[in-house]
Simulated assay, not measured.
Amino acid sequence: MMTVAPRRAHPFAPLMLDDTGSLEAMAAAVMRLHSTLMKVGRCYTTDATCDRAALELGRVESVLAGAFCTIFGQSPADRFADIFDQVTYVAEHMVKDHIFEDGNKRTSLVFALSVLRLAGSPVVLSDSPEPKDNQYYAWIQDLVSSRRTNSGLAEGLRRGYVAGAGDPSHV
């Protein structure tokens, strides 16, 4: 099961997966998310073959473990300033490692925003139909092109954080 560092100490503390089952469940959720986004987006790819799917799942698990698990005695809180840094790390590795044949940017962006929402730190950016005015599009493009540092990208998410997200009028 996923655990969260006490919110009183740091309202945006990184998430930590405390067991293998949680890592596997999160990786399976990423795989389902990717499959759904590919169907909704009418992309050219179909479901990966058994060998390709196993490779993708292993790569997703590796990225997630690097972000959410204790590694060599270092917890996520030791490696990331907050959850915004953590999801930026995941998005960067999912995109730049090009885990999937198609949909890497969409999957990583939706995953990052979903994790933030589930952790009680939802982000809302401008979702203009014009790419030049769309902050989500700009964020993922900046990540892919390395136009901004990870800390700059995480700061962009922090600025989009919706205070009082527990109030349904903000969701």
Rank of each mutant, 00 (worst) to 15 (best):
M1V: 13
M1L: 06
M2T: 08
V4K: 12
V4L: 06
P6T: 10
P6N: 11
R7C: 01
H10C: 08
H10A: 12
H10F: 13
F12H: 09
A13C: 06
P14A: 08
L15K: 01
L17H: 06
D18L: 10
D19K: 08
T20R: 15
T20P: 04
L23D: 03
A27V: 03
A27Y: 02
M31H: 08
L33W: 07
H34A: 02
H34T: 04
L37A: 09
M38C: 07
R42A: 07
Y44H: 06
T46V: 12
R52G: 00
A53E: 00
L55K: 15
R59S: 00
E61R: 06
E61G: 00
E61T: 01
G66A: 00
F68L: 11
F68V: 03
Q74D: 00
P76F: 03
A77K: 12
D78I: 01
R79T: 01
I83T: 10
F84G: 04
Q86C: 05
Y89F: 15
Y89R: 02
V90N: 03
H93I: 05
H98I: 11
K105H: 14
R106F: 08
A112G: 10
G120K: 15
S121K: 13
V124M: 13
S128M: 14
S128A: 14
N134P: 07
W139Y: 15
S146W: 12
R147S: 11
T149S: 15
T149L: 06
L153M: 00
L157P: 01
R158I: 07
G160R: 13
G160C: 14
V162H: 14
A163H: 15
D167V: 12
P168A: 10
H170D: 00
